Amino acid sequence: MAQPGPEPIFPPPFFDALINYCVVSGFTVRGPSAPLSAPLGSSVVLPCYVDEALPVEDLEVEWRRADSETLVHLYQDGESQAEVQQQDYHDRAHFFTEEIQHGNFSLRLDNLTAQDEGEYRCTVHSQQDSGEAVAQIKVSNERLLVSGSNHPASAYVGEDVTLNCSVDSHITPKHIIEASWRKTDKDVNILVLLYQNNKTLPESSNEQFRGRVEFFTAEISKGNFSLRLKSVRTEDKGVYMCQVFAGDLSANATVELERLGKEQKQ
């Protein structure tokens, strides 16, 4: 079954143009430059990051609803404090814990409801410094459907494997702003491969995958964004998310790569 999960190696390529930020006492907190639109029931990542990593000692990060000051999620004393979340966000709002040490304080919000629409404020406190950024969610009744696979993918070490991802047939390639694959398991969010502005950007790949991943280029015009992963390694095992942005809509599907074993003997 698909498992929710976005989001980003920081700063990822498609965040390069983000300009919503506030500078206070020495560091810059950045967020999205435009509202984030997503359909009901989907997941969305609210970007919040700094240009340079901050010491985790005395670091505190909180996400709140800007309209009501409702606490969405808190990072304090070196860990997420899920027990202090407002009840509506239990098991739905998550940090990318392993990325916090790199200055990434983005929040993933799962299973969007109509009540989630509104502004969210990310506030970062580090010793004597602080800063904040604001992200806005727009929940859409329109749906962009992205399909993966109903079954986990498997391969032997050294083999190639295909991770399936396809987009609704009524969404034409010219409307697809971006498609990306990310490895998203165990609090990790690694960019595997990015398609943006009608081009595949292999240089965007995390070094673990660079030179080993590709789209089926001839199939993109048919809405097929499946990923070929070459020469599978043991560390490739995990959950992968295919996320697609088309106009104001975004959607994702996940595929698990499991049962990795030693290369078969002939």
Results as ranks from 00 to 15, higher is better:
Glu60Ser: 13
Thr234Asp: 12
Arg259Pro: 00
Ala34Val: 12
Phe10Gln: 07
Ser154Trp: 07
Pro11Arg: 14
Ser231Trp: 06
Thr254Cys: 03
Asn111Trp: 01
Val23Ala: 12
Glu57Trp: 01
Glu99Pro: 02
Phe216Pro: 04
His125Trp: 14
Val232Trp: 02
Asn104Asp: 14
Leu36Asn: 08
Arg210Lys: 15
Thr70Leu: 10
Arg108Thr: 13
Lys230Pro: 05
Lys186Pro: 00
Ser42Asp: 15
Met1Leu: 11
Gln243Asn: 12
Val157Ile: 13
Arg121Gln: 14
Leu59Cys: 00
Cys48Pro: 04
Glu79Leu: 01
Cys122Phe: 04
Gln264Glu: 06
Ser204Asp: 14
Ala135Gln: 11
Glu7Val: 09
Gln264Val: 01
Ile177Phe: 10
Ile19Val: 09
Thr70Gln: 14
Thr97Phe: 03
Val56Asp: 10
Asp187Phe: 00
Ser43Pro: 09
Ile190Pro: 02
Gln127Cys: 06
Glu142Ala: 15
Glu83Pro: 00
Asp185Phe: 06
Ser154Leu: 05
Val213Glu: 06
Gly78Arg: 03
Phe14Met: 11
Asn111Thr: 10
Ser205Val: 11
Leu257Glu: 11
Asp91Gly: 09
Thr28Gln: 11
Glu214Trp: 03
Ser68Cys: 04
Gly158Pro: 06
His90Cys: 07
Gly238Val: 06
Asp248Ser: 14
Tyr156Arg: 14
Ala179Lys: 06
Ser154Gly: 12
His73Glu: 15
Asp88Met: 09
Pro152Ala: 03
Gln87His: 11
Gln115Phe: 02
Pro55Ala: 14
Asp236Ala: 09
Lys199Ser: 12
Asn224Gly: 05
Asp110Gly: 10
His125Ser: 04
Val139Met: 05
Ala66His: 10
Gly148Met: 07
His102Ala: 09
Cys22Ala: 13
Gln3Ile: 07
Pro202Cys: 05
Val44Trp: 03
Glu142Cys: 08
Arg259Leu: 08
Glu159Trp: 03
Asp77Gly: 06
Gln85Lys: 11
Val72Gln: 04
Glu79Lys: 15
Leu257Asn: 09
Ala114Gln: 13
Ala135Asp: 08
Val44His: 04
Phe225Leu: 09
Gly103Met: 10
Ala93Tyr: 08
Gln81Pro: 02
Leu40Ile: 13
Ala251Lys: 03
Thr70Val: 14
Leu46Trp: 01
Thr172His: 13
Tyr195Ile: 07
Ser140Val: 00
Ala135Met: 07
Trp63His: 08
Gly5Pro: 04
Asp236Tyr: 05
Val50Cys: 03
Leu59Pro: 11
Tyr195Glu: 10
Gly223Asp: 02
Lys199Gln: 15
Cys165Ile: 07
Leu54Thr: 05
Arg92Glu: 01
Thr217Asp: 11
Asp67Asn: 10
